[in-house]
Design a protein around this nucleic acid. Structure first.
Lengths: 333, 333
DNA sequence: CATTTCTTCGTGAACGTTCACGGAGCGGGC
DNA sequence: GCCCGCTCCGTGAACGTTCACGAAGAAATG
């Protein structure tokens, strides 16, 4: 409806039209407080006719609850984060919350300003995929008990929740799979070495290798960057050796890309010359020739669980914790 | 800073600490209005010490400008939209605007409720990737002059802006490319037939074929769904014919996926048995064997231009228009 | 019939900020 | 000495909503 008024319809407009006070309208809209059923119906009808839409700004200001949460992501163009974002958005809207999105491009300074901006917007809580670097500013810039949940990587403080994947187990499962395929010479390419994901996935790789009594050749593992280019260069170092591994594990989708680039660059074929198992599923995995085996993270659920935990912290019905979601080995049929 | 106060620091807190009125603090913060330079410095210093962060809710309520815009996307997990979203976010933050994200999963009803929610949040404007279906509700639910810019597909109203790609030219370029590669029997798989993108890209395909004097065999074109599965089924219909085309053009990334699935299903190889040119670039295109040629859309710029146009409409310095961004044929080296 | 109780509704204040004033203080011109 | 104008700052109101009251009226109770 939204009658040809220049100004949006307010409670008072509805009140005037219905011949009641704005408080009564408020009660009718919110279905809260003592109000006669008939009056409520009548007011609601008029509100609908006028096209009344509550002003959430005013509501938030008065109630000190914005019903919005901030999502700070290090790289929205990474399918992993896009899928997490979809989970966050879905869970948030189902629970009546809005999502404010910020992208940091893995830049810790942009992350800081993004978080400050979101705080100024008075989001009720924050879901953050931390960029690489020190996060001390969280303690200084934000009120002490501000609800924050980290995803993908954790923030080193018990004040903040974290929703992560079982990185070690996932990498271990990849090793086991490769062993059943007859491999013993297995390498790994991970991202920046001071990233939690790199560390844990590399750690899981190493433990599994040891557990299975396989040699860990240090020339077969490399830490590059989180971007395909750096991973490609790191992979080339490994693959151009005469005693190269027969299989490689990667720690992320973009690194898988880089390793595939390296293989192509060297004239090698994945699945033939070198078998590949990559962290993170992607829609093209099954379309590559041969298809690529992946360790899929439960991306949607990471987003949903993060929202669930955050809302628990916001409403006081839950608390910060570190939860781990299982990964799933996807072997192409 | 954010001293151990339970309640966020307000203008009045700073004013009290500085021994001035809250209005003076406001002037110092905003750098607007008559204020002594020294006073300003002093107030600013105290504000920083107290960790003052302006409350954007209050600001927005009073000034009737939220400095936020809504981004309604039909499928954030589609890399195309993820990249557009990155462009939107970047341009918006550079210009001091926040982004509220909503995902509709191609569901027109969810789109409507998402838009209503965003309006209740009093975003200053809306960027919408319209789902399939009727969008009459925009006229009824929103104030008449509410700034809206569509992306990917347009909304049939001159009131709303649109940032689109040169779909016809892109499809035409694909045809020309295939012809230079010696193809004359060219087919096309597009999405749902009542989608603007499908129509325009199919139209561009047909015009180019006619222009080049090539036969348009109706059994060689098919409209499926926007999802890989539907596209796969549509492609199989084309490809299992004895007189199948030697090349196929697709109208989106997900459809390219579907066609590749169809080829695999039928034991055919792309680039060998059937050449493929797909709309939308994706990071794996060059890694497929052989690499796939694509018509890349200028995704980041679609997002940025949409924001630019929207802010023009919001501030009154620009107006709604339909702009088209060129596509780029990416031939793998 | 007076008093109490319950239901239903209205009034004033507040959230934190900006906007539109108005006023104090000071210097300069005649 | 008077008036004008300028610079700087403060006060009151408003944005649209919720919160904490309180009041009016009907129903119930003695």
């Amino acid at each position: 409806m939204q009658k040809s008024l220049r100004r949006p319809v307010t409670l008072k407009d509805v009140a005037a039209a219905a011949g009641v006070s704005y408080q009564t309208v408020s009660r009718a809209i919110n279905g809260f407080g003592e109000i006669n059923a008939e009056t409520s119906q009548r007011v609601l009808k008029i509100a609908a006719e006028l096209g009344y839409r509550p002003n959430r700004l005013a509501n938030s200001l008065r109630s000190a609850k914005s019903k919005a949460l901030g999502l700070v992501v290090s790289d929205i163009e990474n399918l992993f984060f896009a899928e997490v974002a979809a989970g966050v958005e879905a869970e948030a809207t189902e629970r009546g919350y809005s999502v404010l999105l910020a992208n940091t491009s893995e830049d810790i300074h942009r992350e800081r300003t993004a978080i400050l901006n979101l705080f100024e917007s008075r989001v009720d809580g924050l879901i953050v995929a931390p960029a690489e670097g020190e996060h001390d500013f969280l303690k200084t810039d934000l009120p002490e008990t501000f609800p924050v949940v980290a995803i993908n990587r954790s923030l080193s403080s018990p004040l903040y929740g974290a929703v992560l994947s079982e990185n070690r187990e996932g990498a271990g499962a990849a090793v086991e799979y490769l062993v059943t395929r007859g491999h013993t010479k297995i390498g790994a390419v991970v991202g920046s070495p001071n990233l939690m994901t790199s560390q844990e996935r590399l750690d899981g790789f190493r433990s599994a290798m040891e557990r299975l009594g396989l040699p860990i050749e240090r020339h077969w593992t490399a830490a590059g960057t989180i971007y395909p280019k750096g991973a490609c260069e790191a992979a080339i170092e490994i693959l151009k050796r005469s005693d190269r591994p027969t299989a490689i594990i990667t720690s992320s989708q973009r690194i898988t890309q880089g390793v595939l680039m390296a293989l192509r660059h060297l004239g090698l074929r994945h699945g033939v010359d070198v078998e590949l198992v990559g962290f993170d599923d992607f829609p093209w995995a099954a379309l590559l020739d041969p298809p690529v085996t992946v360790i899929a993270q439960d991306t949607h659920n990471i987003g949903r669980k993060a929202v669930a935990m955050l809302l628990g912290m916001i409403t006081g019905t839950g608390e910060a914790a570190e939860i781990r979601l299982p990964t799933r080995l996807v072997v192409p049929s």
